[in-house]
Design a protein around this nucleic acid. Structure first.
Length: 579
RNA sequence: GCGCCCGUAGCUCAGCUGGAUAGAGCGUCGGACUUCGAAUCCGCAGGCCGCAGGUUCGAAUCCUGCCGGGCGCACCA
């Protein structure tokens, strides 16, 4: 193995450990189970993999561990390994190796983290707002988490398409078309196009519920649209354009971009063929006039997965299957990730089971489900009068709340600049709060907590990055020249320097882990720990007045800056140079 | 009724898919700016991991049963 760093330390230690287990124990493809040590007393990393083999090899685990240690060559990365407890092998990184590794990577924009050896073609389906509806807080999690997953996977070198599968087709259009034709207000449309569409939709929905004749009329409008009626098609296109413009405003503020916008309507033409094919192959059957797929797996719902209604119309499920056909057969997707509300998990389990039946067993399907956003009172997050909180107003409020602090800390800046910073800090704080919490369960949204610069928050990370930049700026103004890569060197003298350096070499492992687990909060946790260690280092160790340690401490600062850049870029939290 | 998810410090949450003596933040209390940005840092206190069994070298993590909460259950997406 080459001794050149790839930035993936865990991978490297695993390779060493597995080679040793193979040689010493004769195991074909051993699982060394190398991981970060659970406690500093046990070193930095531990090899846990020997223990499980003790039984099958009918041997004393400690003796096995001794054999493995004898065969273990870490090429200078670690000090002499130790055997502890029932058969753990504790690894301590060689501080000299860590120092050299950090120094070698400090100026690299990727902090030396190499792309994966085998890139995959991956589709991430996220955000997906509905046409004729403003984006509200419910869209935030999908957008922020999906975007972070896309960016992290791209950073790892995968071929990723972030797709906005917008809800631009289906039942709701019958309702909007009916409401448009009967209740539209042109003046309101001029003033606030999306607001007017939203009003019409709500009005149509209520009217349809109250009066079956209206519901029937809406269905007829939908049928006309689906059969290509020119008037309805033109209206539909108009609605889509209005909605997209509105959504793009929000995405601009969130600094989120998509690689494609293949909404549901993109798959219309494929729907009949999907149903016919599944019927012909006997995978789907007619049931009570509709067409559905039944499963015998016990943990799947016993209700069929419907792909065609009794009135002949197609469903969400049909579109999703069509979407998968295109993603796999045309785009060559090997992994498809859905970042959607956890409440839809039954739908996705049925969808994935359907895909296995169809023959897409070689494709990895994953549903990244997330919980609801709750208010501080633990109830669904609403406005004071019980309405839905719009994403835009959430961002406005974040900006307003953070602005006074920016004005206080940076009084000589123009108001425009202050607002710019406040917007970036506020938006980052809101997004970060969403990303930092593990997925799955609902999460509590509390302004004071997420806007604080103490604790695991966006502002804290941004502040720390600003500090690193500020040190580098100060260096340049004092020395009169940039801190150049040729000067990179690291000597670890204090605990704070050592803790910081040891955190820096872990970046690649963490990014890798996020790519596998699709849980961005691991990266948040890492960035937070790194920031804490930098701030502890900063408080304890003079940098610019360090005399002979100047270059070393500048290198650590530079590397921290770079690592935070990588983390914040993957999470898509705005990087600011002042705040 | 069936299915899925969750119960960890006063509060908000981690806990690397079974590893060693369970960790952070907030809050409380006490310290640190004539020095690179104090939106920072350091310290103290705080626990029957909902309860009871089981699996094994080893359980907050896996299995079973309770208790308590959330969510979803044919023609919406």
């Amino acid at each position: 193995m080459s001794s050149v760093s790839t930035g993936h330390l865990l991978e490297r230690l695993s390779a060493y450990a597995e080679a040793a287990m193979r040689d010493a124990l004769g195991i074909e493809a051993p699982n060394a189970d190398v991981r970060a040590a659970t406690n500093p007393r046990f070193g930095d990393y531990q090899i846990n993999g020997v223990l499980p083999y003790a039984k099958s090899l009918k041997a004393n685990p400690r003796q096995l561990a001794e054999k493995v240690v004898a065969a273990l060559d870490t090429e200078g990365v670690c000090l002499a390994p130790e055997i502890a407890g029932p058969g753990f092998i504790n690894l301590r990184l060689d501080p000299a190796w860590v120092a050299a590794d950090v120094a070698a990577r400090a100026f690299d924009p990727r902090l030396g983290v190499a792309p994966v050896a085998t890139p995959q073609t991956i589709i991430v389906d996220f955000s997906s707002p509905n046409v004729a509806k403003r984006m509200h807080v419910g869209h935030l999690r999908s957008t922020a988490i999906g975007d972070a997953i896309v960016r992290t996977l791209k950073f790892l070198g995968h071929k990723v398409t972030g797709d906005n599968h917008v809800g631009d087709w289906g039942t709701q259009f019958g309702i909007i078309l009916w409401a448009w034709k009967n209740h539209r207000d042109e003046a309101a449309l001029e003033r606030d196009a999306i607001g007017e569409l939203e009003r019409l939709y709500k009005l149509g929905q209520a009217a349809g519920k109250a009066d079956p004749a209206v519901a029937e009329a809406a269905r007829l409008e939908l049928a006309k649209l689906q059969s290509g009626d020119p008037e309805n098609t033109a209206l539909w296109e108009r609605f889509v354009v209005i909605s997209r413009a509105e959504a793009e405003d929000v995405y601009r503020r969130l600094e989120v971009e998509f690689d494609s916008w293949n909404g549901e309507s993109h798959y219309n033409d494929a729907l009949p063929g999907i149903v016919d094919d599944l019927l012909a192959r006997g995978l789907a059957v007619e049931t009570q006039g509709a067409v559905g797929i039944f499963f015998d797996e016990p943990d799947l719902p016993d209700t069929p997965y419907l792909i065609r209604k009794s009135d002949g119309a197609y469903l969400y499920a049909t579109t999703d299957i069509a979407t998968i056909h295109e993603r796999v057969d045309v785009l060559g997707a090997e992994r498809i990730i859905y970042v959607v509300d956890v409440r839809q998990s039954d739908h996705f389990r049925q969808l994935f089971a359907t895909c296995r039946k169809i023959g897409y067993g070689h494709v990895t399907f994953e549903h990244v489900g997330f919980g609801m956003m709750l208010g501080a009172d633990g109830r669904p997050f609403k406005t004071r009068d019980g309405g839905t909180v719009l994403l835009e107003s959430l961002l406005d409020e974040a900006e307003e709340r953070i602005l006074p602090l920016v004005q206080e800390k940076w009084p000589d800046a123009s108001e425009e600049d202050q607002r710019k910073i406040a917007a970036k800090v506020g938006m980052g704080a809101v997004k970060y709060a969403d990303l930092a919490q593990n997925l799955g369960t609902d999460y509590k949204f509390e302004w004071d907590k997420l806007l604080a610069a103490d604790g695991n928050t966006g502002p804290y990370l941004q502040y720390t990055l600003v500090r690193t930049l500020s040190v580098v700026r100060e260096y340049e103004s004092r020395v009169g020249a940039p801190f150049a890569p040729e000067r990179a060197t690291v000597t670890l003298t204090t605990d704070e320097e050592k803790d910081l350096a040891y955190e820096l070499v872990r970046l690649g492992d963490v990014v890798m882990r996020v790519g596998d687990s699709l849980r961005p909060h691991f990266l948040c946790e890492y960035a937070y720990n790194l920031a804490r260690r930098f701030n502890a280092f900063y408080a304890k160790c003079p940098i610019l007045k360090a005399e002979e340690l100047l270059a070393s401490r500048m290198t650590l600062t530079r590397a921290t800056w770079q690592a935070l850049e990588v983390a914040l870029t993957c999470l898509n939290i705005p990087r600011v140079s002042r705040m």
